[in-house]
């Protein structure tokens, strides 16, 4: 309300009476704009709501967020002849290319046999793509939808969250491919497969937070959209998407143990490992240290909550573009 406006010096607005014969002076006349607004209960237009209010507004828009993400997903392939089948083909083709290069040509398999390596690769590619495309969509979520931001009222966080949600739905399609690959190479469903539910939930929280952070950066600096693909590709190679990190750093590159551990603690690697250990049965996927799940929770909370607060802090400025 207007209490927060006390620091605001109202500029000299003249309140001259220019016309003779106008009705007697209303008491409103002598007030400054801020005082007049306060008297009649007017609020500053476009002011940033408090954090709890903002969360409430965002929750109130959940139907819009879901509908928007589904609309984007459908619109993506609506002109293709094969239509929505591309939701599955695109990630599959991606995995196939990496298999040719890293599995066959470069020998990045480590000690894994083919039946263990291929699911390892497919899961890695899909899980990393989930984070990668959330960031890429997040960078452009405000700057690419500035028309929407300048036309309608809604909590701006709806946009990056909707784009992350779109990627989550995309990943759910990819899970069909993953399941087929797993069963095809002799990894049959066990109870541990259920762990993918918390794993996906945590990764979604992490991705949404990251998308929110990049949405704010991208709205101020549109150049990020050009830069991010390179950053993300570097991140992909540093996270062991198509090769086991530990094997690559220590046995192939003679690197120190701490470096391998550091790389493995990065969020992209953490979410991939958690998913692989839940789904793949094989000598290289016997046990996962418990701290991996702790890291998965930690990254999700820090980036998810931090990103949300960071985005909210600039809420009233996104229309400026």
């Amino acid at each position: 309300m207007a209490e927060e406006d006390e620091s605001f010096k109202v500029s000299e607005t003249t309140h001259q009476r220019t016309t003779a014969g106008s009705p007697g002076p209303a008491p409103d006349r002598d007030l400054s704009a801020a005082e007049l607004a306060a008297r009649h209960g007017l609020t500053v237009s476009g002011a940033r709501p408090s954090l709890p209010d903002y969360l409430r507004q965002l929750w109130g828009r959940r139907h819009f967020i879901l509908a928007f993400s589904q609309a984007k997903l459908t619109a993506q392939y609506s002109q293709a002849k094969l239509g929505q089948l591309w939701q599955v083909f695109t990630p599959l083709l991606n995995a196939f290319v990496y298999f040719l290069i890293f599995g066959l040509l470069l020998g990045g398999r480590g000690n894994m046999e083919m039946p263990e390596y291929i699911p390892f690769l497919v899961i890695g590619v899909f899980v990393f793509t989930f984070t990668q495309s959330s960031v890429l969509a997040g960078v452009k979520s405000i700057s690419g939808n500035i028309g929407l931001v300048r036309a309608l009222h809604f909590p701006r966080a709806s946009l990056p969250v909707a784009f992350s949600l779109q990627q989550l739905q995309q990943l759910l399609y990819s899970m069909i491919v993953i399941a087929a690959v797993l069963v095809g190479f002799g990894h049959y469903p066990t109870w541990s497969w259920l762990l993918i539910v918390p794993a996906l939930a945590l990764q979604f929280l992490f991705n949404a937070g990251l998308a929110l952070i990049f949405a704010r950066w991208g709205s101020a600096t549109p150049d990020l959209a050009q830069l991010m693909p390179f950053v993300l590709r570097t991140w992909m190679y540093a996270s062991g998407v198509m090769f086991p990190l530990h094997y690559m750093v220590i046995e192939r590159a003679n690197g120190p143990e701490w470096l391998a551990n550091l790389l493995m603690s990065n969020p992209a690697s953490v979410y991939m490992e958690v998913m692989r250990q839940s789904l793949i049965s094989g000598p290289a996927h016997q046990s996962l240290p418990g701290w991996f799940w702790l890291l998965a929770v930690g990254w999700a909370l820090v980036i998810g909550v931090g990103g949300f607060v960071y985005f909210w802090k600039a809420e009233e400025r996104y229309g400026r573009g």
Binding site: T43, V44, L152
Partner: peptide, 27 residues
Amino acid sequence: TIAGLLPPERGRVYTNGQPSLLGVNAA
């Protein structure tokens, strides 16, 4: 700016309730 969609550089707009622009094209 009155609708609160574009922040003013200086000055303020006070409104009663939420003014809305008629138009949904962008959505």
